[in-house]
Design a protein around this nucleic acid. Sequence first.
DNA 1: GATCAGGAAGCTA
DNA 2: TAGCTTCCTGATC
Length: 320
Amino acid sequence: MEDITKSSNQVQFSRRPRNEHHVEDSGDKAHTLLAGKILYEKAVEAALHQEFSYWRSQFHSEGNVDESSMIHALKTAELRSAYCSSLASSGTVHQDALAGAVETRPPGDGFVFHERYLMDKVHSMVLQEVLKDIETACNLLNISPDPLSWDTRDASKWIFWTEHQYHLPPLGQAFAGLDGRALSSLSEEQFCEMAIGSSGPTVHAQMEIWRTVYHYISHGTKCKDTYPASQPIHLWQFLKELLLSPDMYSHLIRWLNQEKGIFKIEDSAQVARLWGERKNRPAMNYDKLSRSIRQYYKKGIIRKPRISQRLVYQFVCPRR
DNA sequence: GATCAGGAAGCTA
DNA sequence: TAGCTTCCTGATC
C-alpha cells in the first residue's frame, strides 16, 4: 500500500501493509496521549476516509459501492477473519486504545496510526450497520434474529427479504419447505446449486452474517445478552417498513416507483398516527411527520421527486 | 383547507 | 449530540 499524506488538516497518515503492525516505542507516553487527544477527531476521520477509499477502490474500481457490495467484499478471505474478530469484540473502540494506536514522530513526520486499530474501527462501523439492518429486518418480518429458530414460514420471509434487499432474481420455490436450521446447514455450493443465477453466494453470505451476528449477540458480550440492541427506529426506516408490507399498508403508503424509491403517502393522518404509536407520541400528526421528512432533505436520505407532487417523496438511495 | 418549506427552540436517549 | 418533536410563518396547490 502506498503512503498517503493528508495535508489539508495537517494530519499525515502513513499506510503500511496490513500484516505489518507497526509499533514503535513512543518514548514519551504523556506526550503521546496528549497528541492523541488533540488530533483524535481529525486524524481518525482522515484515516478512516482513506481506509474506506482504499476498500472502495479495491473492490469496486468504478467507485459505486453499496451495502450488498460491501457485504460481498467482507466475504473475501482477507477481510473475513478480521470481520469475525471484530464481531467477537465489543464493537466499540475505547479512547484508551488510541494511546497504543498513535505514535509520536519527529516534527514533520506526522502521526502513524496503528493499522490494526484502523481495521478494527472500520469493521466496528460495518458491524453497527449490519446490526441495524438485522434489527430492521427482524422488526419488519417479525422473525427472530436466530436463524435456527425459524420455521419454514420465517425462512421463506427471510429469503424474500434478502431477494428484495439485494435485487436478486426471484428465488421462487428454490428454498421452499426449508426451515432456518436447514437453511443454516447449507453450504455455499448447495446455495449455488439451488439458487437462480448468481444469487447463491449472496444468500449464503447473508445467512453466514446473520448466524455470526446472532452468535455475537447471544455470546459476545456481557452487556448484550439479549437482542435487539434496541436502537430507536428512524422515520425513514419506519416508512420503509410500511412500504415493504404492501399487504398491510398499501392503502396508507405505497411505491409509485420502487426502483427509484418514489413513494406516495395515501393516508397522511393514518401514517402519522402509526408513527406516533411507534414513537409513543400521541400528538403526532402529518404536519410534524412531514417536518421530520423535510429534515432528511439536508441529510440526503429523502427528497421530493423531480416532478413534485403532494404527498410524494423519494428515497435518495433506494437500495439502502 | 391541506400540504409544503424551513426557521427556531425544546426534548430525549 | 443526533434525531426528532413542536410550534410557527408564509407560500402554494
